[in-house]
């Protein structure tokens, strides 16, 4: 099965956590936690398994960030989630060279959270105006309503 194959390939990368997910509860088949510098290698593995980048987003956990990657596959039902904790102020490497889809996703995360993706070819605001000086999805950003 694809989920097993992905787990086997990812285990070789010595990540923090590679586990089978509880699909009925969370919608995941593989749950992964990794360090920022490992994400490019993970993306490479996912592409080799013919998975596409479903979504890329971030969480503001007040003390730190967490970048969350979702991968799924066209051929078989298998969703992989990758959690990448990130200390605030640090950069995460881009995966846009592996997945062009990540180009816009990373720009969006940069726009809304202020997370910088090192090596991104065109990292500028995607949704908000270029002269905006805030990142609305941070927990300390207060919406006016």
């Amino acid at each position: 099965m694809l989920a097993e194959q992905i787990r086997n390939s990812l285990e070789k990368l010595e990540l923090e956590k590679v586990a089978a997910g509880d699909y009925g509860r969370t919608g995941y088949h593989v749950e992964v936690a990794a360090k920022p510098e490992q994400i490019t290698a993970i993306a490479q593995v996912m592409l080799e398994h013919q998975c596409f980048l479903e979504s890329l987003t971030a969480l503001d956990l007040i003390e730190s960030f967490e970048v969350v990657y979702h991968f799924a596959c066209f051929r078989e039902l298998c969703r992989t989630v990758v959690h990448v904790p990130l200390i605030k102020g640090k950069t995460a490497p881009t995966i846009s060279s592996v997945y062009p889809a990540a180009d816009w996703f990373e720009r969006e995360v940069f726009d809304l959270f202020g997370i910088v993706f090192a090596g991104h070819p065109n990292l500028k605001r995607l949704i908000l105006p270029e002269d905006a000086d805030f990142h609305p999805l941070l927990k300390d950003f207060v919406a006016s309503s």
């Binding site: 509860r25 969370t26 919608g27 479903e54 799924a72």
Partner: peptide
């Protein structure tokens, strides 16, 4: 906890995380 659910919309996969 967290959850991801996907449905097929007219334009493609709509996922809610």
């Amino acid at each position: 906890g967290e959850v991801y659910a996907a449905v097929e919309s007219g334009r493609g996969e709509f996922g809610t995380y």
